[in-house]
């Protein structure tokens, strides 16, 4: 088997004195859509931030294309080809939609060009000159995803892209994720909503108290429904 695109091993992380991750370990292969499912506070977002190098105090190993990234600053991690869409979306109020879209530097060839992005997200073309945070929540989410599709990054980290959005918009985001997957992108998705996750992902890792407690292929999901309810408390 080839080296997975992303390998996380024995990952520990702290915020100040609180120990958040206790030995996370999982892999994502090229072309897969993989989710981290879990309740609030289980450590999913901290895992994403640790991969990006945004958590200063951490231990363990994070390898991208076999290369160790621990110790790299966030901008160097991003330049290896990892696109990050943070939970709070990270759209900048003092930048127009177009400026937000063009903000991340191109890190590798093969990203979508502006025409392709506008075809995928027509609203962003219409509202290019609006202020970034004048967009609706759903449009801001699209913008946050669109701007990392431009850079040539092959692994996208999407932290709860459906959070707080209306069902129609959630469906639209699902379609977007399936489209980018067809275009060969690899996606690591953080979700609390497993019904949504089931419509887009190949595999699911269940996160509890800062470690992986279960691993479920998407086909097994319906058979494992009872366990999932117990894990997620829904």
């Amino acid at each position: 088997m080839n080296t997975p695109l992303l390998e996380v091993e024995g990952l520990q992380a702290w915020y100040g004195e609180s120990h958040i991750l206790h030995g996370m370990g999982f892999t994502v292969a090229e072309g897969e859509v993989v989710t981290l499912l879990g309740r609030n506070g289980a450590g999913k977002s901290t895992t994403m931030k640790s991969i990006m190098g945004l958590v200063p105090r951490r231990q363990g190993s994070i390898r991208f294309r076999g290369r160790e990234t621990m110790g790299l600053p966030p901008d160097r991690v991003a330049r290896l080809g990892i696109g990050f869409c943070p939970e709070e979306r990270g759209i900048f109020a003092s930048l127009s939609v177009a400026e937000n879209l063009m903000l991340p530097p191109v890190v590798a060839p093969g990203g979508l060009d502006l025409a392709a992005i506008h075809e995928l997200f027509p609203n962003l073309a219409e509202r290019a000159q609006s202020g970034g945070t004048k967009l609706s929540g759903g449009e801001q989410q699209m913008l946050a995803i669109a701007r990392i599709l431009r850079t040539g990054a092959r692994l996208l980290l999407l932290d709860e892209p459906t959070e707080g959005l209306a069902p129609v918009i959630v469906q639209e985001i699902g379609r977007t994720i399936r489209t980018i997957r067809e275009r060969g992108y690899t996606v690591l998705l953080v979700e609390q909503n497993f019904r949504f996750a089931a419509t887009v992902a190949d595999r699911h890792y269940v996160v509890e108290h800062g470690r992986i407690v279960d691993h479920i292929a998407n086909q097994e999901l319906s058979a494992r429904m009872e366990d999932l309810h117990a894990y997620l408390g829904v």
């Binding site: 190098g53 600053p73 530097p105």
Partner: peptide, 13 residues
């Protein structure tokens, strides 16, 4: 100026 951490995570030094 708004959020240096996110800007850095988008690949800017």
């Amino acid at each position: 100026t708004e959020n240096p951490a996110i800007v850095q995570a988008l690949g800017i030094d």
